[in-house]
């Protein structure tokens, strides 16, 4: 993929993107960035500083849960984020909403 999403577009869909990445497996922050990059051919490049507040927000709202795994580079356990059942439901709802939106946009013409 050549072009990249504008920051507004990325910010507007950050929850959907993060929940989608974590749907398959629990990951820690750095790995989430790598996963987003590799699965989209570099299309999604997060501003790394905004990733962690977003993860904490989703955790606080009950859509993600955190588990500690193996020791990281600083010798402390890595914090892994995983989808909760509420997160799974939110992901399904957000996908449906996004699908309806893109379909409506495409119906406006061109696509």
């Amino acid at each position: 993929m050549n072009s990249q999403p504008t920051p507004d577009l990325l910010r507007g869909h950050l929850d959907l993107i993060l929940l989608s990445i974590l749907e398959g497996q629990p990951l820690y922050g750095f790995a989430i960035i790598q996963e987003a990059k590799s699965r989209t051919g570099g299309y999604f490049e997060f501003r790394e500083g905004s990733l962690y507040p977003a993860l904490h927000r989703l955790e606080r709202s009950g859509l993600l849960r955190a588990d500690y795994g193996e020791a990281g580079r600083n010798g402390k356990p890595r914090k892994y984020y995983a989808l909760t059942p509420a997160g799974q439901a939110a992901l399904a709802a957000k996908r449906q909403e996004f699908g309806a939106f893109t379909q409506a946009v495409s119906q406006l013409g061109g696509a």
Binding site: Y28, G29, F30, E48, G72, R73, N74, K76
Partner: peptide
Amino acid sequence: ATFGLNAERREAVWDELEEHILTR
């Protein structure tokens, strides 16, 4: 980066960010 957080949370966020930076 962890300014303003309470001690317990500050330590957790500190560890998480430090791990990220060192891996990077």
